[in-house]
Amino acid sequence: MIPPSFSYRAPATVSEALALLNESDGEAKVLAGGHSLLPMMKFRFAEPALLIDIGRIPELKGIRQVGNRIHIGAMTTENELLESALLKEKCPLLPEVVRWIADPQVRNRGTIGGDIAHGDPANDHPATMRALEAEFVLKSADGERVVAADDFYLGTYYTLLEANELLTEIRVPVLPPGTGYAYKKLKRKTGDFAIAAACVVLSLTGDKCERIAITLTNVGPTPLRAETAEKLLTGKAIDDQLVEQAAQLAMEICDPAEDLRGDKEYKIHMAGEMTRRAIREAIDRARGRK
């Protein structure tokens, strides 16, 4: 649990950071909160020659509304998300998810950008971002692109992010009044990753489900989107039977890795159970808001 030696730089601006990334030819790693990267370095799973600490770049911080989107700087910490009055009012799903992430110490340093960029399907933001249909701003010395969260995750620790790119901003929608949402996470203890979790965002028209997103955490190589379940429920008045069918469809797409938290069978069933609970709670919330 002793990392190999590495160099360290702490640029003051995004462009400096991008220049360093460009020069380093894939040998560098960006250091955000360090709560995923440093453990990997201690196990020597990651052995970067250079750490570029982006913690001293003011432009990477902050939460603000721009039209019907909320723009969040990548270096915004989990605790800052938790305390944001803007998020609480306009996108309450996000602080709700943050409460399930790790523990207060980790949330003091861990950042939303790091949680998203790490590409770990066990992290809680990725599935949430897919359910919210968020967008990520990726910058490099060559320019900037905006990608959809839905397209971002390619495999475990494998995303659209290129070695010379920095995730600078996360854009999530302002949830219209009446939006139902829920994040249901089953875990062994505080500070532990999900055995399985489900995120649901939906809106109702009358009794009918107008739109629904269902995503899953830690039951596949990437955060999963249960599209068949979404299709099943869209346009229908959701009753117990439909919830059950949707849960079954969600279970069908799961391919979790076995560990001490459970084997495949258990984790798949728990993905189903979390889906049931999340759909129900999201519906209750959607109704409660009307």
Binding site: R188, I195, E244, L260, R261, G262, D263, Y266, H269, M270
Partner: peptide
């Protein structure tokens, strides 16, 4: 008695059926 082990027993006995 981690949850996966307890669930195995529940599942084998059909106690987790809705």
């Amino acid at each position: 008695y981690k949850s996966c082990n307890v669930w195995k027993m529940l599942h084998a006995l059909g106690l987790d059926k809705r």
